[in-house]
Write a protein that binds this DNA or RNA. Structure first.
Lengths: 102, 102
DNA sequence: ATTATATATGAGCATATGTTCATATGTATG
DNA sequence: CATACATATGAACATATGCTCATATATAAT
């Protein structure tokens, strides 16, 4: 194929794709997103279930929040997080399926 | 949900999912895989089209090879690479679609 | 055999990323 | 208002990652 016949991706597109996959590439975030895909959770619950520090969970949630992959609602002192991007959850579940059935 | 009612992912599954997404998370590898999804390419061609050094391309191809995402055939001194994992290409294309249509 | 071409690979370096620790913020309650 | 509880955040540190540079390997041609 000639150089000029290639269909190139816009660099903005590449950056966005990279961003999506980067977020899905960390085992901790995979666990958090998978957990949140099953149920709405507060921060301490996530930390307990995944056996992580509250701080580590909170840092990761902040990343997921910034990318609008999760949302939250407050109930008193407690924040309940849930998934906010069906498409990303779909990518995650496909990869899980693929990984499980090898 | 009670602790014991969660459906947990096997740690092996999590590692495999992470591996898939890590490989897709790098802009250079995104470009290479997208290019190879369009046509079989030799190493120098990839380097020219993507304006990268031969060495950088070769290092990335080595990563893709190790994960069996690409295969190659030899023709004289030249190696022709192509995609070898339709599922990963499918994940990539879905993410591109999503990123483009925001 | 020598040389040229195509590709691979190891070492070193700079940057990115995830965790911990300490501390700050926000909300309810006495 | 003081205290407790839930969560967030900044700094520091360790590890991972991708590039470059130099060099090695493989194949072909002279």
């Amino acid at each position: 194929m000639k150089m000029e016949d290639h269909s190139f991706l816009k660099s903005e597109t590449i950056e966005n794709v990279s961003r999506i996959f980067k977020v899905l590439a960390d085992p901790t975030r995979i666990k958090i997103l998978y957990l949140l895909s099953q149920e709405e959770c507060n921060v301490n619950h996530i930390a307990e279930v995944l056996e992580m520090s509250q701080s580590a969970v909170s840092h990761q949630l902040s990343i997921l929040r910034n990318l609008r992959l999760v949302k939250y609602r407050r109930e008193g002192k407690t924040l309940f997080y849930s998934c906010d991007d069906e498409h990303v959850i779909s990518l995650l579940k496909q990869a899980i399926d693929h990984a499980e059935h090898h």
